[in-house]
Design a protein around this nucleic acid. Sequence first.
DNA 1: ACAGAATATGTGGTCGGCCAACTAATGGGG
DNA 2: CCCCATTAGTTGGCCGACCACATATTCTGT
Lengths: 181, 181
Amino acid sequence: MPGTTDPVCTEPRAAARTGVCGEPPTAARGGPVSHTLARVARMHRIAMGRRLRELGLYPGQELMMMRLWDCGPVRQSELIQSLGLDPSTVTKMLQRLEQCGHVRRRPDPADRRAVLVEVTDEGLALRAGVEGAWQGLEELSLGGLAPADRAELARLLGLVADNLYEEAGEEGDCPPLPKSC
Amino acid sequence: MPGTTDPVCTEPRAAARTGVCGEPPTAARGGPVSHTLARVARMHRIAMGRRLRELGLYPGQELMMMRLWDCGPVRQSELIQSLGLDPSTVTKMLQRLEQCGHVRRRPDPADRRAVLVEVTDEGLALRAGVEGAWQGLEELSLGGLAPADRAELARLLGLVADNLYEEAGEEGDCPPLPKSC
DNA sequence: ACAGAATATGTGGTCGGCCAACTAATGGGG
DNA sequence: CCCCATTAGTTGGCCGACCACATATTCTGT
């Protein structure tokens, strides 16, 4: 342990080499659930990303497409609202989705500022694949969990979502549901 | 509902304007838990990002710092292993953390390919803030949950993590724990 | 009718994160 | 002893996502 103030580490280096070091960082002890949540979400995202890539989508785009599958031609601003994303994020993502032919954009005749977005036939064709991937991943994630456990997990996650919603404000879903769609 | 094959949408646009459109995309019904999980994780990340910004960190960097706080000087490859990140991600993140003075890098005398990374005093000074933010967010997230519920949530998330671990392979934490730290 | 607020998008830049391709050093066999 | 597979890092490129800032249009109050 040379030089500067050695970190608080319990294993200066000897034990570390043996592979004893605790898995969750000690600094994360104050938030074990948060840590597991982040870990699970990340693995979930990776797993979903793998499935999506085979479909020709990048992670994140599937939520956009889901929204577009639900609504007909939508204003970009409504997508921003319902997805809770930054406007610039949506602009760029739609530009790419359009270039890939999954989506079509045209100016809104009723409001020359706005842009109407709608799915193309090619984009609609992705739906089955995405839904299948989504369901498959759900089943993989919850494998071995009894229905009661699944319900309990959904309930608890919902509570956490409500707690975070107030601070993370945003949108992402229902609560405010400001306008259309 | 003009022109091209109209999406399956239940509300072509009239009802949409009234704000009736379902919150979770219908395509996500096959994976309600996955959807909530992604939503919660995203809000959690945003909330954590806000706290981290005040400390001068970007989301994602806190996990790196936590790892560095635990171990003394570590090889970059070990960070890659324990965080489960892509090597290039780690390289770039460390370059930025070094430029900010939170981290120091020097060649490993024992292996001229490797690089040893360690936290600086300035980086160590962030620890209290990060841990505080982490704990605060944990408390915010779990607010109103009885201890039993918290334990149950942790348990269920752990099960999901195990399920996903097999596919998402990766690392991220303990199971393999290949080498030191 | 018009100035100023509010709305709807787009730009440029930065970061985390991944992949692919590349360099440099180590370590085994033959 | 030398060739080659392996390992450690780096670079470049691309995408999601954010912010700050800039633009065009619509809306509102006076």
